[in-house]
Simulated scan of single mutants.
Amino acid sequence: MALADTAALLWGTVVHRPYVYAFFACFLVFALHQLGPRRTLVFGVTTWLLAFGAEYSSTRNGFPFGPYRYFDETRTRELWIANVPFWDSLSFVFLSYFSLALAGALLSRPEERARGRAPGLLHPLAPLLAGVLMTLLDVVIDPVTLQGEKWFLGRIYDYPYRGFYFGVTAANFAGWFLVGAVSAWVFQRCGASLPGCRGPFRRLHPRFVPGIYAVYAGVLAFNLAVTIAIGDHALAAASAAVSALTLAALAVRLRAPRRAAGIVVCAATFAEAAACRRGISDADATGLEVL
């Protein structure tokens, strides 16, 4: 295939799947802020390769998502790699990242999050928790995706037999858990061994954790809205329950710690106040407020 043809198909993917690239743009913004360019590139490439390999394998031998097949009616309008649509495997990159970022926040102490730190990203349990958060997304995503002919997604794929959960198979959920967990584990290993990826993570903006929570909730809300729009009321009720319980549990665990009484530093000028804040931040001090 000529380079011009590939570029045209890639642009067709953007045109036909703008919602995918909107969430991917969110991934770039948050990951670059948290991980920096090199680690963002490592995470994006390794996760996409794992996701593509998993889909390529499943459509041939059923591992790890169980047997299924894609319908290639859009092959002339958007980019496909072998028998897998590019946008589908690309979606795993941002879904895996926000699952891992939330897992890292959940496994970090509130005091650490208040200081702009998220050491839980490297916690041994982070891959398992990220896999669980990925699977909870899939519980809402896959049943409505399976009905793509009823909305603007189109008929994309099908299973050779109907699964137990609104047509989705248990193997599919297990595969999502595996991809989410393995992609997080691989990122942790790359961060510990690759040049340019070692060292502490960047200090996070105070609104970073609420931001990743909002994007995760946005993925659930988007798919729930589509489910309601196509009129599948039973699935909408189930997806709403899963979304509400998941988001409520995350909100409780991520709530900001109570601010203890501290010291107020009064500065005469904005420049002096900025210098005080930088010093307090560099020292990882808490309980200080600059006016």
Rank of each mutant, 00 (worst) to 15 (best):
M1V: 15
D5Q: 15
L10F: 15
W11M: 10
V14S: 00
F24K: 02
R39P: 01
T46A: 15
W48L: 05
G53V: 02
Y56D: 03
S57T: 14
S58D: 07
S58F: 07
T59Q: 10
N61Y: 14
P64E: 00
F65M: 02
T74N: 08
L79C: 04
F86A: 09
W87T: 00
L90G: 00
F94D: 00
S96F: 04
L100W: 14
R109N: 04
E112A: 14
A118Y: 03
L121C: 01
L121S: 00
L125T: 06
P127G: 00
L129W: 05
G131L: 05
T135N: 11
L136V: 08
L136C: 06
I141T: 11
L146F: 07
Q147Y: 02
E149T: 02
W151I: 09
L153T: 00
Y157D: 00
Y161W: 12
F164W: 15
G167F: 08
G175A: 06
L178A: 15
G180L: 05
S183C: 03
S183Y: 05
S183T: 09
V186P: 01
F187S: 03
C190S: 13
P195V: 08
R198F: 07
I212G: 02
V215W: 10
V219D: 05
I228N: 02
A229T: 10
G231S: 09
G231Q: 08
D232P: 06
S243Y: 09
A244H: 12
A244L: 15
L254K: 05
R258F: 08
R259K: 13
G262Q: 10
I263M: 10
A271N: 10
A275I: 03
R277K: 12
D282V: 03
